[in-house]
């Protein structure tokens, strides 16, 4: 007889496991925070990690941001054109990017570029006993290895999202004004009169900071909890990207409902 209750049990299992992992992640966040003081006092460690988390993501962020802005302008133009309000193109591009696309897409890109790299690196350090070696030398791996990566991610994320937004807006300008021939003055002035610093820009930055915390926490957490084998590390890397994507989108929904 087939087990009819199996799907139900499976769902229950997943839920329970999810709650467990969430609890562990929160406890881990607490550990990270109480070990952060040392990290923030040792700037070179942090700078090194910002290089790997932020600088190395810069290229993909610039390229993607520009293209997203260009596509937005192209699509927006055809739609706005049928309502005869193409002057609103600047507003459309800027608001789409600032409120949603910038923070979300930058965070997704960051998760797959830097988050996965972080998980793989930490997972390998665990698998090759580097973290144990550090602990045996009387150096706390949380303070020395994990906290700098965490903070680097938290610092880099809003900067990357801002770069993404600017590239998108410039990309939109290129398509709308340079290619299609709309009035450049209208592009900027409409944008300026409809974009609000606090409401749109600051809220977008808050979003990206929260995404930064979520993605790097997931990346570092999956790294230290990876099963210390090749398969374990690769599984953890995949989980980082998938979990990050889901968490970013869910958080984005909640934050949007809350903010706008």
């Amino acid at each position: 007889m087939p087990d009819l209750l199996y799907p139900l049990r499976r769902v229950g299992h997943l839920v329970v496991e999810g709650v467990w992992r969430f609890g562990f992640a929160m406890r881990f966040l607490f550990l990270l925070l109480i070990n952060s003081l040392q990290t923030l006092q040792r700037l070179p460690l942090l700078i090194r990690e910002i290089y790997f988390a932020g600088v190395l993501s810069l290229l993909i962020i610039v390229v993607s941001g520009t293209f997203v802005g260009m596509v937005l302008a192209l699509q927006g133009y055809t739609t706005l054109n049928s309502f005869g309000s193409t002057e609103a193109l600047g507003t459309l591009v800027a608001l789409s990017l600032l409120r949603e696309l910038g923070p979300v897409l930058a965070a997704l890109l960051f998760a797959s570029r830097s988050g996965s790299a972080m998980t793989a690196e930490i997972g390998l350090m665990k698998a090759t006993e580097q973290l144990d070696a550090m602990a045996v030398m009387g150096v706390n791996p949380i303070a020395r290895v994990l906290a700098p990566r965490f903070w680097a991610g938290v610092v880099s994320m809003p900067l990357l999202a801002a770069v993404f937004n600017v590239c998108g807006i410039v990309g939109g300008y290129f398509v709308g004004v340079v290619m299609i021939g709309l009035d450049g003055g209208a592009y900027w002035s409409q944008m300026q009169s409809n974009v609000d610093l606090h409401y749109d820009v600051v809220n977008g930055v808050i979003k990206s900071v929260i995404f930064g915390v979520a993605v790097t926490l997931i990346a570092v957490f999956e790294g230290v909890n990876a099963v210390p084998t090749a398969a374990g590390v690769s599984g953890a890397t995949t989980r980082t990207v998938v979990t990050s994507a889901l968490v970013i989108l869910a958080l984005d929904f909640m934050l949007t409902a809350f903010m706008f």
């Binding site: 770069v163 300026q192 610093l197």
Partner: peptide, 12 residues
């Protein structure tokens, strides 16, 4: 970029 968003886009 942040400054650009604040000054040029949101028109502080």
């Amino acid at each position: 970029a942040l400054l650009f968003l604040a000054l040029k886009v949101a028109n502080l």
